[in-house]
């Protein structure tokens, strides 16, 4: 953690393969994010790459070894759901390869920034499986059903420019500037912002995704009133 910004590093170089579907145990993540001062989280990969995704050998070993694959996948999903539903912003800073499970982690973030040399793919289909940590759902939400179908079914790799054009990422920046750009953006977003305001914005944004327009707007107005009342009473205090 630096200032009020937390950093999660996928640290299994060189490719940062994910040993387990739940790349951070939920309990540890929960404890870490419960720090009162935490205002934002940046996820990145150690070294040259973000993450090449799940370790297929491990995965198939899990299947053959009759380990409870379903339970492990469920745990992995719970971690990503937790990140997505956090009431502080999560930004993924992506360099190098971002494949499969790595891309699914990136898709659970609220903002994706990548370097010019980033590469994206859901290669699962080439191994007879599909993205299993919410990737099919989140990519459809992010880039639309048609593009998502093509991307997942083809299993092909795309570059940073293509990812930007199809709205898979929000920004492409030079490799050397990736972390600075991400950190500066997060600072500008959170530095002078009281936590209740950040929380309210995150809640409204989540509603925008999940609620029909009438209800989402009703909630937006309600959150506005809550902040306005807090502000009024703060100003009236001596």
């Amino acid at each position: 953690m630096r200032d009020d910004i937390g950093v999660i590093t996928l640290d299994n170089p060189p490719e940062n393969y994910l040993a387990d579907p739940d790349f951070i145990p939920l309990e540890i993540l929960r404890k870490w994010t419960s720090a009162d001062s935490l205002k934002g989280i940046i996820i990145h990969g150690a070294g040259k790459h973000f993450s090449a995704g799940g370790n297929l050998e491990n995965l198939f070993a899990m299947i053959h070894g009759k380990e409870d694959l379903m339970a492990r996948m469920k745990a992995g999903k719970a971690v990503l759901d937790y990140l997505e539903n956090l009431n502080i912003p999560v930004i993924a800073a992506i360099q190098g390869v971002c494949f499969g499970g790595g891309l699914e982690i990136a898709l659970a973030a609220h903002i994706r920034i990548c370097s010019e040399n980033a590469l994206f793919a859901f290669p699962e289909i080439n191994h007879g499986i599909i993205p299993g940590l919410g990737g099919t759902v989140r990519s459809a939400q992010q880039i639309g059903h048609r593009k998502s179908l093509n991307f997942i079914m083809a299993g092909d790799m795309i570059n940073a420019g293509e990812a930007l054009a199809m709205d898979l990422v929000d920004y492409v920046v030079p490799k050397s500037k990736l972390l600075d750009f991400t950190y500066t953006m997060m600072q500008k977003m959170t530095q002078d912002r009281p936590l209740p305001v950040i929380h309210a914005v995150m809640e409204a944004l989540r509603n925008a995704k999940t609620l029909p327009i009438n209800e989402a707007m009703q909630e937006e107005t309600r959150l506005f009133c809550e902040l306005a009342l807090a502000e009024s009473s703060r100003k009236n205090e001596p």
Binding site: V197, A200, V201, A204, L205, N207, A208, I213, A216, M217, E220, T221, L223, F224, C225, L227, A228, E231
Partner: peptide
């Protein structure tokens, strides 16, 4: 405050 007239939605 936050945008409360549909701005976020």
């Amino acid at each position: 405050l936050l945008p409360g007239l549909g701005g976020i939605k």
